[in-house]
Structure formats: C-alpha cells, structure tokens
Simulated scan of single mutants.
Amino acid sequence: MTTGALQGLRVVELGQLLAGPFCGQLLGDMGADVIKVEPPVTGDPMREWGQGDDKVHWEVIARNKRSVSANMRVAEGQDLVRRLIAQADIVIENFKPGTMEKWGLGPDRLLADTPSLIIARMSGYGQTGPYADRAGFGGIGEAMGGWRYIVGEPDRPPSRMGVSIGDTLTATYGCMGVLAALNVRHRTGLGQVIDAALYESVLQVMEGLVAEYDHGGVIRERSGSILKGIAPSNVYRCRDGEFMIGANKDSLWKRLAVAMGQPDLGDDPRFATHIARGTNQTEIDNLIDAWTRTLTVDEVEALMTEHSIPAGRVYRAPDMIADPHYQAREAIIEVETDRFGPLKMQGVFPRLSATPGSVRRPAPSTVGQHNAEIYGELLGLSADDLSRLAGQGVI
C-alpha cells in the first residue's frame, strides 16, 4: 500500500493550538512522519479544545502524529529538539516571532546545521514589520485581513464563522509553502523559510475587496446571507427546512424560472441579466422564497436536480454522516482512537490518484507517548537517559 505522496519525509511540529498543528495534520495526512513536540505534562492545549463533554478535536488534528515531550524553555530541552530537527526535513512552528530565536532554534542556527531544512513559520502578523512582535490569534487575523468586517447582518456588529478559519487558512498556506519549497529543494538541495501570516492568509481570499476600493472607492459592507449583486444565491425556506440555491447565471436563472413554473420570469427585464438581478436582489429572493415555502426540501431538491441547477441541503453533522454521497466517497471515515474507540471524522483531502493520503495512526492519547520510541531510535537515548530527563522535567 502507498502511504501518501510525502512518504519518507519527516516533520517536527513545534506549534500549539491550531495553525501549526493543522499544517502538521495536512502534511501527515499526505504521508509525512510527523513528530509532535509537546510541553511535558500539560501538552498542547488543543487536547482540551472542542465542544461536548468529551473533547475530541484533538483526535482529528493530531492524527498521523507521534508525540514526544520536551521543555523548550530549558537548555537541555532545546538541545533535544535541535537534535530531533537535525533528523528532519521540515519544521513547523507558530510561536510569537522571536521565541524560536530566544530558544536557540531560530532559522539561522537550524539552517546552518541542516541546509536542506524547510521551516514553516506561522504567526499573527508575519516575521517582519512593525506589528511582528504582537501576539495574534486567528480571530485577530480575520479582523485585520478584512474577513470579520464583511461577515454578519448589516445592522449588527461583525460576526464570525463557527470555525477558526484564520488559523486553518494560514496552516493551508503554510502547507502550500512547504510543498513549493520541497520542489525547490529537489533542484538545489537547499531548504528555506516560509513566513505565513494570519492576516495575509485571510487577505488572500478577499477576492476583489482591495481592488474595488482602490479603483472605485467601494467599501464592501456586511450583507447577511447574500453576496451583494450576486443573485439568486441564497438559502431559502421550505415547508420542512432550508435549501441553498445558486442560480446566479443567465442560463441557470432561466432554468430556475421553468422549475418554478414561471418561465416568463426568465426573460423579465428585472431579472434577465446579471446586473439586473443584482439590482433587484431582494425582489428575486422574495419570489424564490415564496415558491420554496410551498414545497418540502425533497421536492425542491428533485426539481433542482431535474433542471441541472446548483443547489443543495444545508447540512449538519448528522446529515453528513447519513448522506450516500459522503459514504460513497468516504468523505467521513471511522478511526479507531485510543481514548474513544471508533470515531467518525473527515477523511483526507484532496484525493491523489496514485499516492492517496490516509489516516495511518490515531492521535497520541498521552503527552510524550512516543518518547522512548523516538528519542531512543533517532537520538540513541537509553531508558536511564529518559528517566533522568523526566525526573528533571525536561521531558
């Protein structure tokens, strides 16, 4: 069996909480051997994150990883990590800029020891600039990057998504940088540093927001469930739930008008063109909503499928688990975890035809679970060495 496109690469993950660990999850899913370095005893705070009585987010973000513990605030812990990194291809960290340098683990030192090393650094504002030394979480990056201002209802304060999108975007761009740097290393043999900032990762997906202001003085505002000028594209009420319809194209609108039993609307001057539909966005949404409210979700879905109109149900977790398309593509998989037994979670994406990724091991259930295995095999430490380090609080 193949174990992923990154089989044979070793990653040392030093970050905590979300951005660094999610980058590690992506690389691990693609086949890399990820060694997660955690603070002794307490471990990564992600172990206690999530909703519900049992916190299971860790089981997702720490899959395909092995855990070692090391106190990087003391010299002997720093030396352990430095020796681990010397055996690695990639390092991930998302500490406040300057922290790695303070610990003697800055890029200059690491690259001098291992010129082929690729170092992915994720932070709130990047490694340079006047804000570099400020603390930054995902929500702060979302605010500075423009996301928060445009999300929510127009008459209310900025809202947020129900997930930490700033962190996961930054992790994804960090992963993208690692893959690009690997390609360069294939040619030159040399590694490099990837500088991924939270606010810039959010800014990257802001579409034309800056250009619209620069060219025409347009400032995007909160618009609730719609994207201003893009119509129809909204969630509409049915007799027994909600349903998403995206018919914001001339040909699609004509087909939707036929599906609604009102074909004349397709050529109505108020709605016949993209600009006209955007101008009359509220009116077109009201027409569709009045129609969908007479039908069930099943009935609307059948009509949308019949007329080839992009549309879909608004899913929650139980809907995802039950859906036959999810099942056929194994979009949700079941992983045998140490703490909770069989646990359903998202699969590995994207899908590669020749070297697909996989979940090969569950999240480590205890901090430093693989200390003996990794420190013994890679660094040659004995059981007595490990016992001494543990007694001193180094691991």
Rank of each mutant, 00 (worst) to 15 (best):
residue 270 R to D: 13
residue 272 A to E: 01
residue 273 T to Q: 01
residue 273 T to G: 01
residue 274 H to C: 04
residue 276 A to Q: 06
residue 277 R to K: 07
residue 277 R to E: 09
residue 278 G to I: 01
residue 280 N to C: 01
residue 280 N to Y: 00
residue 280 N to T: 00
residue 280 N to E: 02
residue 281 Q to L: 07
residue 281 Q to K: 03
residue 282 T to P: 00
residue 283 E to L: 08
residue 283 E to N: 01
residue 284 I to M: 02
residue 284 I to S: 00
residue 284 I to D: 00
residue 285 D to N: 15
residue 285 D to V: 03
residue 287 L to P: 05
residue 287 L to N: 03
residue 289 D to Y: 07
residue 289 D to E: 14
residue 289 D to C: 08
residue 290 A to F: 07
residue 291 W to F: 09
residue 291 W to G: 13
residue 292 T to Q: 04
residue 293 R to H: 05
residue 294 T to P: 08
residue 296 T to D: 12
residue 299 E to R: 05
residue 300 V to L: 07
residue 301 E to C: 10
residue 301 E to R: 10
residue 302 A to V: 04
residue 302 A to L: 12
residue 305 T to I: 14
residue 306 E to W: 05
residue 307 H to N: 11
residue 308 S to W: 11
residue 309 I to S: 10
residue 310 P to I: 11
residue 310 P to A: 10
residue 312 G to L: 09
residue 313 R to N: 14
residue 313 R to S: 13
residue 313 R to H: 08
residue 314 V to Q: 14
residue 316 R to S: 14
residue 316 R to N: 14
residue 317 A to R: 11
residue 317 A to T: 14
residue 317 A to F: 15
residue 318 P to W: 15
residue 319 D to K: 13
residue 320 M to F: 15
residue 321 I to S: 14
residue 322 A to N: 13
residue 323 D to Q: 05
residue 324 P to K: 01
residue 324 P to Q: 06
residue 324 P to Y: 05
residue 324 P to L: 05
residue 325 H to P: 04
residue 326 Y to Q: 10
residue 327 Q to E: 10
residue 327 Q to H: 04
residue 328 A to I: 01
residue 328 A to P: 04
residue 328 A to N: 04
residue 330 E to W: 02
residue 330 E to P: 07
residue 331 A to T: 09
residue 331 A to V: 10
residue 332 I to Q: 06
residue 332 I to G: 04
residue 333 I to K: 05
residue 333 I to E: 11
residue 333 I to N: 08
residue 334 E to C: 13
residue 334 E to I: 11
residue 334 E to A: 11
residue 334 E to M: 10
residue 335 V to A: 12
residue 336 E to K: 08
residue 336 E to R: 04
residue 336 E to C: 02
residue 337 T to E: 06
residue 338 D to F: 03
residue 338 D to G: 03
residue 339 R to N: 04
residue 340 F to R: 04
residue 341 G to M: 06
residue 341 G to S: 03
residue 342 P to A: 00
residue 343 L to R: 02
residue 343 L to N: 02
residue 344 K to D: 11
residue 345 M to V: 02
residue 345 M to R: 01
residue 346 Q to D: 09
residue 346 Q to Y: 03
residue 347 G to D: 07
residue 348 V to G: 06
residue 349 F to L: 15
residue 349 F to K: 07
residue 350 P to S: 14
residue 352 L to K: 02
residue 352 L to D: 09
residue 353 S to W: 02
residue 353 S to T: 13
residue 353 S to L: 12
residue 354 A to T: 03
residue 354 A to H: 11
residue 354 A to Y: 04
residue 355 T to C: 11
residue 355 T to R: 14
residue 355 T to I: 05
